[in-house]
């Protein structure tokens, strides 16, 4: 169980401080695939960095804490301070662009065995790796190739292999398939789901594509303007979203075979520089009232296992069903 307790991430700039993640409190059960969705600037990537422990100036964990629920080799609990020591061991990361993460002048196999904290017996590790990547659908020759000789899909599989080789408890994937073709994306996502089923670890998946979230995730976290606005079981979130933003987001996406009119959400998220009061979605929300602008809604469990931060949670769905 991973706990985020009122996590606030701030960026310090010449103009002052800004909170890219502003007080997120959720509990992530073990063994789930959590999808994090929201528009650019909502804070999802920052949240990932926080959880991964990749916190460098000007970003800082301004307040709050993260409890990871698993201990290190000596059994000590891991918190945001020492999570860095566990990279690729108990927690790992699949980046969006594999070409930016693989050393272009080093063969793939060598990069694999050069992990920090790796077994000094490189030959044995290499043999294990060879066997492992076969399971991921990669030919053995992959290890002897340079990154640019592999296709995008193969490279991403290599990244997944690296990220899962040590069977970490937690895997963070930041838009892992955005740069891939839709056909390759499906293969990669299915692979990820297979691995998760076998290893039983927790995956946090950031994606802008709600379709990907629908297919892959078991829980969903929707973020808006640095706040968590909805959190719950995927099935529930997609079937009956509680927060108007979630609902409008999901219904704005066209699907093939569905001829209903779709509409985008007009307007922009509020700038995080200004003083924000009340619900941050109020300006764009069709349900907004004076109460929304004055009082910020808290993330409340309106249905079992399904939280939303809205004074009128579930009303849009109710109205739609009544209509």
């Amino acid at each position: 169980m991973i706990r985020l307790n009122s996590v606030v991430a701030s960026y310090r700039t010449a103009r002052g401080s800004i909170n890219a993640v502003d007080g997120v409190t959720i509990e992530i059960p073990d063994g789930c695939i959590l999808g994090v969705a929201g528009e650019s600037g909502c804070g999802k990537s920052t949240l990932m960095k926080l959880i991964y422990g990749d916190v460098t100036s000007p970003m800082a964990l301004a307040s709050g804490s993260i409890e990871y629920g698993f201990g290190d080799a000596k059994g000590r609990p891991i918190t945001s301070d020492n999570i860095r020591d566990q990279w690729f061991n108990r927690i790992s990361y699949i980046p969006q662009s594999s070409m930016n993460s693989l050393n272009p002048v080093v063969k793939v196999g060598k990069q694999f065995v050069d992990f920090p904290g790796s077994d000094p017996d490189k030959k044995r590790v290499l043999a294990e790796v060879r066997e492992y990547i076969g399971k991921l659908g990669l030919p053995v020759e992959t290890l002897d190739a340079y990154p640019h000789q592999l296709s995008g899909g193969m490279r991403q599989r290599v990244m997944i292999a690296m990220a899962t080789f040590f069977q970490p408890e937690l895997i963070l994937a930041d838009e892992p398939t955005t740069a891939l073709d839709v056909v390759v994306q499906k293969d990669i996502l299915l692979l990820l789901m297979d691995l998760q089923e076998q290893m039983g670890n927790t995956i946090l998946l950031v994606s802008h594509d709600m379709g990907v979230h629908y297919q892959v995730t078991t829980r969903m976290l929707i973020m808006y303007a640095a706040k968590a606005v909805e959190y719950g079981d995927s099935e529930s979130v997609f079937a009956a979203p509680l927060h108007p933003y979630t609902r409008m987001l999901i219904s704005s996406l066209p699907t093939i075979g569905d001829d209903r009119a779709r509409d985008g959400i007009p307007g922009r998220p509020p700038s995080l520089w200004q003083e924000l009061s009340g619900c941050r979605f109020a300006d764009r929300c069709p349900l907004a009232t004076a109460r929304c602008r004055a009082e910020e809604p808290a993330l409340i469990e309106h249905k079992p296992g399904h939280w939303a931060a809205c004074h009128y949670a579930g009303e849009m769905t109710q109205r739609a069903e009544a209509a």
Binding site: E39, H208, L249, L253, P254, R262, D263, G264, P266
Partner: peptide, 9 residues
């Protein structure tokens, strides 16, 4: 952004 694409479309 996905939420605003349909405006253009």
């Amino acid at each position: 952004d996905a939420s605003r694409r349909m405006i253009i479309i």
